[in-house]
Design a protein around this nucleic acid. Structure first.
Lengths: 212, 212
DNA sequence: GCTGGACGCTACCGATCGGTATCGTTGAGC
DNA sequence: GCTCAACGATACCGATCGGTAGCGTCCAGC
């Protein structure tokens, strides 16, 4: 495609803005951070900022895209450093996540936090979140599928719920607890999935009266 | 204590405000909703609103307290309607939660969503959320303790993570899937916890290199 | 050494933010 | 029928919101 220069050439300015915005957005939430504050802490003029990002929403989207990118980069790094055994790989991933959610200053998953601030399901933040979480389930499924379990899709979703729960744990868990609880939980979910039991286990606990 | 009338007598005005604010806060997030909008949709004058709630933060706190109260009311209703068997009770609770998170317009757990908008851990919203989530773990623990499992505390936390994960599932799960996945997941976690295995299962998957 | 794009600075825009002051109305209990 | 607390209506406050206009500076590439 032709070089229309819709965006200035790369001179590091956009990176400075995005770095400051990402930190501020993550710590304080989106709507709590004004553009003036991003201008002040990035050291970039407001006019320059708006040459790189048309609107605040565009900056928010760039923030979440960046978080998404970095998250999978680290994920891939953990997987690459692990042996090929899929179960060990899963445990290493949970080790990484357990440490992540229990480290100081952790404020939860940015995808979840930011999406909560926007009501419109078609807002860029909501779209990016959906894609991010779908990718998580897919990656988990491809790992679980390599382990002998009877319902890999279901177990993958359960693992994703466990992980998202850890993301929202708000500093309740120590590092050791977080890792152990995640790994033992995954172990239990994998073990059960590999057993051949009648599939209607849950049915007898099914419908009570409707609530609300 | 003496009747100083720090707050007007109960004539239903505060309820109208809280009802409108709760709906708007839940759907749009806190900072996206101005006090003027609450005034308009509650049909209560701004002056009257501020006679009942000193600040917006006070209204936010009242919203979360109300959500907390109603949540446990429904929880207790589900438990009361279930047979005494603790496992069946747990399954009924998960049936209720699975339906809740998959119903149309569900926007996630208000405690989680609202707390994400405030950076200060001592903000009322953050405090109420911590109390709410701690209560969840305690209630789960008291149920799990009645079932023969080797680490009831750990399983209770795992169930809480599973539930919080479902709360953030953002409409990904159909009603049938949500209920089945939660109940089967809980079943697996309970089964494993009741087995006597060597406690160091996870240790061999422990520390990789540090990331970040 | 001139040119053009990237950037900084200041000043500004209308809208909205949370919150308040003033005053008039209404209605139940004595 | 008087009182007093509760509520409504309007108008306003300073601060901040996201975003823009205008203009000067700086510097790499021709």
């Amino acid at each position: 495609m032709s070089r229309k220069a819709a965006t200035p050439a790369d001179t590091g300015t956009a990176d400075k803005v995005l770095a400051a915005a990402s930190r501020l957005f993550y710590v304080n939430g989106i709507r709590a951070v004004g553009m003036d504050r991003i201008v002040a802490e990035s050291g970039v003029a407001k006019t320059s900022l708006y040459r790189h990002f048309d609107t605040k929403d565009a900056l928010v989207a760039a923030f979440l895209e960046r978080e998404d990118r970095e998250f999978w980069q680290q994920w891939d790094g953990v997987v690459a450093a692990a042996p090929a055994d899929p179960k060990v790989r899963l445990m290493r991933i949970l080790d990484w996540i357990g440490k992540r959610v229990s480290r100081e200053g952790y404020r939860g998953c940015p995808q979840i936090n930011v999406a909560a601030e926007f009501a419109d399901p078609e807002h860029p933040a909501r779209r990016i979140r959906r894609r991010h979480k779908a990718a998580m389930v897919e990656r988990l499924k491809s790992i679980v599928a390599q382990i002998k379990v009877s319902r890999p899709g279901e177990v993958a979703v359960q693992l994703a719920l466990l992980i998202d729960g850890a993301f929202t744990s708000d500093g309740r868990l120590s590092k050791a607890d977080a890792v152990r609880i995640l790994q033992n939980g995954a172990d239990a979910l994998l073990r059960d999935g590999s057993l051949k039991r009648n599939g209607s286990r849950a049915a007898k606990h099914g419908v009570g009266q409707e609530h609300r």
